[in-house]
Design a protein around this nucleic acid. Structure first.
Lengths: 171, 171
DNA sequence: TATTGTTATACTCTATAACTATA
DNA sequence: TATAGTTATAGAGTATAACAATA
């Protein structure tokens, strides 16, 4: 269909197109969020790879560090990670000797850090802080606070567009 | 090791823990970006599923719509999608009759919208606009502009923490 | 030599459904 | 009946390496 006439429909592509694509999605909030998030996640992933951690593992280490004794499901809810997906995550960290578990309930498992996990948590937080500082470089305190507040507001927006406060991940 | 004494290390979990987890990662920019992005992406995915599109496909439709004749690689670069990953994306849209391709070069393929693709692009943009409006609800124009500017600044932050202007995805 | 499109492949994160055992 | 943990599985998205054809 395109080559019916022998002349291309897009021949102007060969000489007259501007260098810069016209981008109608640059003004979309969701698109910009996704691109910015991808950049920071890639940078964090590279930085944490040096100590053998993935972002989700480092985040969980931080959270367990200040909340020892909460259940696996509690941590999952707080981070927006589903129960089913917490299993391989905690299994890998158990196997690596970073966390320990104890049945509190018969069905609940309390999580805590081993000494090895605590040591790695400290290293991870130093790496994360350096990573965060790189991206905070262009922002003053006020702008950064406004940005974080906006991101939380977006996360807490309900499907009808109202800003509410669920605060934790759903399942 | 945990149950050596018969008393759990985390027995306080059974009575004294506060309802709300202490969350040391809430102040992290990368974490908040990821959570906010995930919420918007999930909402957009649900909304676009009604017309059988995924977010990446709808975005590509919008971009081709105003830039017909650019190559597959051009669109990939603009959206930060690697060449290799553009293949299944464009293949599915070709198969669905949404886009058309024409060799401009021997190696480059110019992309354009079919009439069916143009019609679906219009529907997708209406859905996306309604989706965006839901999340913009809590922001005035000034705050929204500042937020988008901040997100672009983050995306353009180089590995050394300087804000530069690469603007397109890397490979 | 560099670029375009392609294949094949792998990893991460996420999602659902179903099962068990406990509360 | 609801919850915690588990298993199995599937689907997106993204990453690399390599190849052929072309510029």
């Amino acid at each position: 269909m395109l080559s019916e006439t022998g002349n291309g429909l897009y021949d102007d592509a060969m000489d007259a197109l501007p260098d810069i694509i016209v981008d109608p999605v640059e003004c979309r909030l969701g698109y910009q969020l996704r691109r910015a998030s991808a950049v920071m996640m890639a940078d964090l992933g590279m930085a944490l790879a040096e100590i053998g951690l993935r972002p989700a593992e480092a985040t969980l280490l931080s959270l367990i560090g200040v909340n020892p004794g909460r259940s696996q499901s509690d941590f999952g809810r707080q981070l927006g990670i589903k129960r089913a997906n917490m299993v391989p995550l905690t299994a890998a960290m158990l196997k690596a000797g970073l966390i320990e578990r104890e049945a509190t309930d018969g069905r609940s498992h309390a999580l805590g850090l081993t000494s090895k996990g605590e040591a790695l948590r400290a290293r991870a937080e130093a790496i994360i802080e350096a990573h965060e500082a790189r991206f905070r470089a262009g922002f003053d305190d006020k702008r950064l606070a406004a940005l974080v507040a906006d991101l939380i507001a977006i996360r807490e927006t309900s499907p009808d567009g109202r800003h509410v406060a669920p605060r934790a991940g759903r399942e």
